[in-house]
Design a binder for these strands. Structure first.
Lengths: 223, 223
DNA sequence: TGAAATTAATCCAATTATATACCAAAAATC
DNA sequence: GATTTTTGGTATATAATTGGATTAATTTCA
């Protein structure tokens, strides 16, 4: 059998996973690796590219190839390329049920924090940028209130979409003053429903809120 | 007794499952495998086609045959430490709405694939391991049917939990024959509801299904 | 016996690996 | 600080390898 780039990549992947190559270590140079495995340098390069695509290593021209330090994950390409409608559909799946779970698990401190956020949002009717940041914080707080770390992580991943360029532009179009007022009122109703421990009402209000967001979006897309 | 393609497929399947062949690894070439097992190349080809049909390997002309990468290389620490109840709550949030979206976007090919999976699951009432793999595939297929890449990615992340040790043990406890029969029937009802384009019925059936799963889980936790 | 599977031998097209040379960025050396 | 060495980045023509496909002879087993 002929050794190929996939095989080199597989070997290195194993060495990284079992700790033989630790975090931040510099790998041997491409030329050395090529000699060690008796392959051409191009083959080693291809293998390293595959590992780099998975974020396992970082290649720095003129310096070397390094094992990616733990915790520095690359931005997920799927998240990066998510469309506005995909995002809304996903929030439609998640957030109503997050409201139900928040009814079960939210604490007084969560309500205090939510009150704070709502108050500040109501002073942002003419500042789409500030409103948007607070809006993200509000929805993140709801996820936090579920005490479900998996859900919190998913919501944080989804939120990372919103900080991208296309979204920053879009919010300027969507978030006029009337819309912000509408969202503020909806946020308050949702919080009240959760506070009065009414899961289905909270979930339905969230659905209405997201429906409004979807409407704004499709209207904006038509212009 | 002559060695046939089914035997080769079975051997390779085992090597993939026990990790001797890891994700993204390249299998030896068809010619080498033929020599190793003392069979003709055509037989090896037939075996690889079976594995490919099950999605275990990817065959690339001119390049080689590769173990299908499942999930991510780097297991997210949050995902890694997710508890069974967190997972069920998260699926409770996602999957009913995934059913609604599947009603809107599923194609004939999705129904065909789902039929295939259901048929195979119904032959697994006494093999929890095989059933579990097919069950994951079924829920993944539903996510795929939404044509929403963001949702598909989230589901794939969640599924990566299920391949971890604590879960492998747990499935042996939970999945007795009666439970598998119940799940099979629920899966079929869900598929029927989606096929008849009834979003709310599909979503409610999924809720019932997950409620049953949660029950199994809490019962297992008590023992 | 007869259908189905396996074998063995080709040829093809796609993909990958090799070998080499040169460039540019970073690091090491003086 | 200037120079040399090392490192990855790029390009390319050639050779080797791989899966795809076809065919005919053979074996297997119901």
């Amino acid at each position: 059998m002929k050794i190929g780039s996939a095989d080199i990549a597989s070997l290195l992947r194993r060495e990284i996973n079992n700790g033989a190559l630790a975090s931040k270590d510099r790998l041997p140079s491409e030329r050395i690796l090529a000699e060690k495995y008796s392959v051409a340098r191009g083959t080693v390069r291809e293998a390293l590219n595959q590992l780099a695509k998975d974020g396992l290593v970082e290649v720095r021209a003129g310096s070397g190839t390094y094992v990616t330090p733990l915790g520095e994950e690359l931005i997920n390409p799927v998240i990066e390329s998510a469309t506005p409608l995909e995002l809304i559909d996903t929030r439609f799946a998640l957030e109503p049920h997050i409201c139900r779970l928040a009814v079960l698990h939210a604490r007084k401190s969560d309500f205090d924090a939510a009150e704070n956020l709502l108050g500040r949002m109501e002073n942002c009717t003419s500042d789409p940028g500030a409103f948007s940041a607070l809006d993200t914080a509000f929805h993140t707080l709801l996820a936090h209130s579920t005490r479900n770390q998996l859900l919190q992580w998913i919501v944080s991943q989804i939120n990372s979409v919103r900080n991208q360029e296309q979204w920053l532009l879009m919010r300027q179009v969507i978030l006029d003053e009337a819309t912000i007022r509408q969202y503020n009122s909806q946020h308050r109703n949702i919080l009240d429903a959760i506070r009065s421990r009414d899961p289905e009402r909270a979930a339905n209000l969230m659905k209405n809120h997201l429906e409004a967001a979807r409407l704004s979006l499709t209207r904006a897309a038509e212009t």
